[in-house]
Design a protein around this nucleic acid. Structure first.
Lengths: 207, 207
DNA sequence: TGATTTTTGTACCGTTCCGAACAAATATAT
DNA sequence: ATATATTTGTTCGGAACGGTACAAAAATCA
């Protein structure tokens, strides 16, 4: 953020960075994902990213700042996945299933054991004592509600929903379905079971 | 667990305990509740319980054993609250609302900031790497599903639900509603808002 | 080539962590 | 009273924690 030239290659001066900060952030996020914010040491993050601690500190600031950045990155990724899935050009039930399929492919990504939702597994724990994390969490949840609701509203206008259906309530139920899937994934539920759960929830939501 | 006589007062021998283990466990649970398993030190637990670390260790074993016991205690409390609420002698919608009201009074209990669900805030984070916690979590979720489903099944038999309603699916939705409430409480949502959410979800579930 | 700039990697600091050792304290039993 | 049993509270130790100082390394600029 020091200077931003429109040129592709301005002229980096000193010793070149050994690692790409963006992918390092992804690896750091993976570490938090597995063991939570408090449960993950900077040494583990250092091992996961291949950056040593001073480099981490120079690139992202302290542990908390690094986490907050990872959290923001995850939100953006989730929002993008959701909006792509909710595209207006497919039927409502298909759109909702796309959302849950997208979520599942995130929850079951990575090398190790299925890890569920990064937010549910890390931010929810810290939200009580850390107001900034709490605020990020609240805003993210709100976004999900709003996006679901908007999609349900257009569905109702298109006649895909009964006229007396309440998009706000159904939106919250759609979010609730996502939440329960996220939790169950972390509890070890198999992917197929969660997919089936989603399918049935979609049926109820679509009336 | 050393000896269990049917007599009320067998004969405690050495120096008497300064604190009641059961309430100490509650205080320890409160500490975990606020800052999670990894985020809570034994010193903080020691301060919260009034027991010093060696006494804690003697009474409960190490940190993890103490946590597991607190988790088991919380589950039992939750199950009891739920089953009381789901009593067959009230209408389905009332019973469900009782469940959510009970959950809310747990989520909003304590001195400090609303703390949501103990399980969601602590066990879900640790479940990835700790198989025993994961197993406890899975079993607990299952119990909720089952209890909801059983209650919904009797409701359908009594004609409170449409004949084509699927108690299993609606049970999962009922659990999902609980999950989303738990998460939102931790994110700072006001109690009245969550109560309203529950009310509307109950309406959808009851058809 | 030599000066400058930036990142890397080693080493270190003070703190906090969990767990245990051990003596003092407080009860019952004889 | 003396012995025995159990808990308490002080103290310690070794490891891990987050964060930083500082020199070596690797690039560009002059």
């Amino acid at each position: 953020m020091v200077q931003k030239k429109s040129n592709t290659e301005p002229k980096p001066r000193g010793r070149p960075r050994a690692y790409d900060p963006q992918t390092a952030l992804l690896r750091a996020r993976d570490a938090f994902w597995k063991t939570g914010y408090s449960g993950t040491s900077l040494d583990e993050i250092s091992a996961a990213t291949g950056m040593n601690r001073p480099s981490l500190y120079a690139a992202f600031g302290d542990k908390r700042a690094l986490y907050l950045e990872a959290l923001a990155q995850y939100w953006q990724l989730s929002f993008a996945s959701m909006r792509e899935a909710l595209a207006d050009d497919r039927p409502l039930d298909e759109a909702l299933m796309h959302v849950y399929e997208g979520a599942l492919s995130i929850y079951f990504s990575g090398d190790g054991r299925p890890r569920g939702c990064f937010v549910i597994g890390t931010a929810v724990t810290e939200a009580i004592e850390d107001s900034e994390i709490r605020q990020s969490l609240a805003a993210g949840l709100q976004t999900f509600d709003t996006d679901f609701e908007a999609r349900l509203r257009t569905a109702r206008e298109k006649g895909e929903l009964k006229g007396d259906a309440d998009p706000a309530v159904l939106g919250v139920l759609a979010t609730a379905t996502m939440h329960t899937i996220a939790i169950r994934a972390r509890a070890g539920a198999p992917r197929a079971e969660l997919r089936e759960l989603a399918r049935k929830a979609v049926k109820v939501i679509c009336g």
